[in-house]
Write a protein that binds this DNA or RNA. Sequence first.
DNA 1: CAGTCGATTCACT
DNA 2: GTGAATCGACTGA
Length: 220
Amino acid sequence: MIATPDRTPLTRRFFDRPVLEVAPDLLGRTLVRRTPDGPVELRLTEVEAYAGLADPGSHAYRGRTERNAVMFGPPGHAYVYFTYGMWHCMNLVCGPEGSPSGVLLRAGEILSGHEWAHKHRPNARSDRELAKGPARLATALGIDRRLNGIDVCAGPQSPMAILTGAPAPADQVLSGPRTGVGGEGATHPYRFWIDGDPTVSPYRAHTPRRRKSDAPSDAT
DNA sequence: CAGTCGATTCACT
DNA sequence: GTGAATCGACTGA
């Protein structure tokens, strides 16, 4: 049997480019999550770019903190964060070290390991819902903070990797505003997805959360 | 140190 | 379409 080039992790050089180049180039690629029960594979269908210190929508906007430290490190590593007290989301760090940017993995199609993914996502009513949304994607693949900072360009022993293979054709890639991002960061078309793919998550505008001090009152 | 809210998901109306 | 869940990072005093 000849070695299969398509099973090789992408090189670090792939991620060492401007995030707006890397993000659409990731669509159609395969993310493999290596579990004790075998590999779970996902074809990426939707991503979002978070572009450096000047991007108001990015966790890195206000500088380095303990949480976002991985974004300031070398490209090709996973930035996994915990949010809403319940969920995890995963980014891939891009660009030259020191310019903190990343690609949020928002959705994908599970290619193998369906049984394992459904076990982690009991709410999913169909295969296409398994990874339809960033927290769903992380949950389906068993990704949590223990994987924060891991190198996805490392060898086959790594718990996670993005494999080489053909990206989605450019004429099937659409872009638009990022989901759930408010303020100045809401206008940039930094969300990329594969046109018509049923696993792409629905767009939602940012919804500011109601404050306690806004509690209902009889006064006017 | 207390207040605020999040790169979301789910149940319910 | 609206609101709850749920906790920890971040902010400003």
